[in-house]
Write a protein that binds this DNA or RNA. Structure first.
Lengths: 333, 333
DNA sequence: TCAAATGGTGCAATCGCTTACAGCTAATTT
DNA sequence: AAATTAGCTGTAAGCGATTGCACCATTTGA
């Protein structure tokens, strides 16, 4: 970064006004006579003046920048959330500093502290679970934080989610109606609050309510090959219907079932709980719980803009509707 | 953003030194006596002092922030590039401001100007083509810029790419060796330099060199359904081998072919030129030109760090190796 | 007609840091 | 022993903006 060529001071001198007036013009303050404004504007154009956002940030204590914390950029679930966030951010003229935190030596609280040091006006946090460190780091600051598609143990932070319990129950019903009674719930990490407090209890309640037997939760299935390798176990146990939280795992499971000669959906049905592109391009296409990822992100960012303007929130926790999209991996009776 | 609680001044007072000394300690300057350093460090710890990066940025004219310009976050091609960039950025302690520019009202030069106003130390630009506006905007600044996975008309800006001509030629050879002689090149936009200056000339040369007939370039195939809808036309024209630049389009084409009873790869072979997750989870799995996306990003970011430190570059344009990965959508003879 | 309100502008302090430069002490040369 | 040099620290001038306050000239109201 080299010395800035033209500063507010240059504009002031050239337009024969004070820096204060130039600043007012730049910031759209009304208290400037039209002629003065025009003259200043003309000089700004002529000199190609561009305000230095860093100096603005220091003086005004607002950087029009928000931090985005995301586990992994290449996970389409978070990528689509991010897109919703980004679009709203652009609308409100915020820039986004993105930080991915999965598989990093740097701890989450250090990442968050780094963002706070950069004086971000707000933070959006996305993850399967809100980590301890993150919680502590957020508590220490008064910079607003919103959780997007992230379940936290407590309800301290504003959040946007869908009703995971209801969605799962509806999906399980679909399987049961198709005559599948030995059901599985396949998760990445059963200790993540989204699973521990939502999906697993919903699953267990469903099993109990319907007096099903031989149903089971399978943990630690995080990627394609985990899913692929899981199928034999399911087959051995006679499982004939599964809800899989991650889309790549679902596809692994699907391909594995097909490779071993199972008929999907006749012998084995799969529903995936995250409807990214991948779920819809495989054959048979996967029936999905379609989360409104873009909207989750967009709503979260909108909430954050309100918090950053001290506008207050009508609702602290927003629940968006989901859709159960029936495709070819279930019978569709 | 509220008033910062503890500033460098507080630390100075508490440690009975000047701000300058605290600043030296914070920045790891050697010219501080060990005892003084220890005393300052102790106070920093005790008061939980965190430097204000905005103030640092204004005073030092370096923000340790780089701008990332990407067409679309949810495009896995760019997401994987971004991951490589991000990892190296973390290593060198840079933050990333990400801006997506596809389908936006805001023009690219405005986006770039916004980044420059934030005083980013450098910019990485990713796209299928370097736009006019972007070129002009970059020329006006002395902030370093690196192109990652982006072909530009001129060679003004440092860049990292693979040898697209060579890769395509090798892929075409594979198809020809499998006995497929009516070949197609399926692109998103034939005016993009990567296509206009690399892929299409390579295709045409190959066709001419091998005296093939009925080969053709298909333009405007940008997404799944474009690919899906394209197949009948290919079939009618007797095309039996295709190279598709976008992975989702390839999958559309593949599914369409299968749905219409074509045998892949016996009747029709497909090679996709971007090897993202999607290409490997579909059945039959797609043979791909595997670009080292992560590395492209990482190398680009490494180049940028050198430029930001005025270290100079050994090579301005870096070409990374690709791999032709044979899967099930070609015969594999 | 005079006091009060309003609008437009400038002054100058401030935001929290970095960094020449200078000065001082103690160590090293000559 | 005097002159350099090296090591450590402080002073203070920025960096480029925002903003509270004061001031003056007009309007407005009674």
């Amino acid at each position: 970064m080299h010395k800035q060529d033209v500063t507010i001071y240059d504009v002031a001198r050239e337009a024969k006004v004070s820096m204060a007036t130039v600043s007012r013009v730049v910031n759209g303050n009304n208290n400037v006579r039209k002629e003065t404004r025009d003259r200043v504007m003309e000089v700004i154009k002529r000199l190609h003046y561009q305000p230095n956002a860093v100096a603005q940030g220091l003086a005004s204590k607002r950087t029009t920048t928000v931090g985005l914390i995301v586990p992994d950029l290449t996970n389409l679930y978070f990528a689509e959330l991010s897109k919703g966030i980004d679009d709203i951010a652009v609308l409100y003229k915020y820039n986004i500093i993105i930080s991915s935190v999965e598989n990093r030596l740097m701890k989450e609280d250090a990442v968050i502290q780094g963002l706070l040091n950069k004086q971000v006006d707000g933070v959006i946090y996305m993850s399967n679970k809100l980590s301890e460190e993150a919680t502590e780091a957020f508590k220490r600051t008064d910079t607003p934080v919103v959780l997007a598609g992230t379940v936290s143990g407590n309800s301290e932070f504003p959040s946007v989610n869908i009703d995971y319990k209801k969605a799962d129950t509806e999906a399980l019903n679909l399987l049961l109606n198709d005559g599948k009674k030995k059901l599985a719930l396949v998760v990445g990490d059963k200790e993540a609050p989204i699973n521990r407090d939502n999906r697993i209890p919903a699953f267990e309640k469903f099993v109990a309510d319907n007096e099903l037997e031989g149903c089971e939760v399978f943990d630690g299935i995080k990627d394609y090959s985990d899913g692929y390798n899981l199928y034999p176990e399911l087959a051995k146990k006679g499982i004939n219907g599964a809800i899989v939280t991650k889309d790549v795992s679902s596809v692994g499971l699907l391909n594995s079932a097909l490779d071993r000669g199972a008929k999907v959906p006749e012998d084995f049905e799969i529903i995936t709980a995250s409807a990214t592109q991948i779920a819809s391009v495989v054959r048979p296409a996967l029936t999905t719980i379609k989360q409104p990822l873009y909207d989750l992100g967009a709503v979260a960012m909108r909430m954050l803009t309100k918090l950053m303007n001290d506008e207050g929130l009508e609702e602290k926790h927003i629940t968006l509707p989901y859709e159960l999209i029936k495709k070819q991996s279930t019978l569709n009776k």
